[in-house]
Amino acid sequence: MTKTSTSKTSANLPLQNMFQSSTDNESDAEINLFYDQIKNKLDSLMKSPSDDIINNILAYSKTK
């Protein structure tokens, strides 16, 4: 019988397992600091719908 094993380094963990792993090692302060650091980057992903879509909505409103 062949025994198989899998490396348990984080690089080889399935993503779902990574996500389920504990965050106990991280303090709230660390998480909050990270959020502060990344806020601007998250903000830079902000997008708006096209003017056409807004005009469609406003035009629809006038028919109601």
Binding site: M18, F19, T23, E26, D28, I31, F34, Y35, I38
Partner: peptide, 8 residues
Amino acid sequence: RYALSNLR
């Protein structure tokens, strides 16, 4: 918290 932790 998990979302931020995972992003990190």
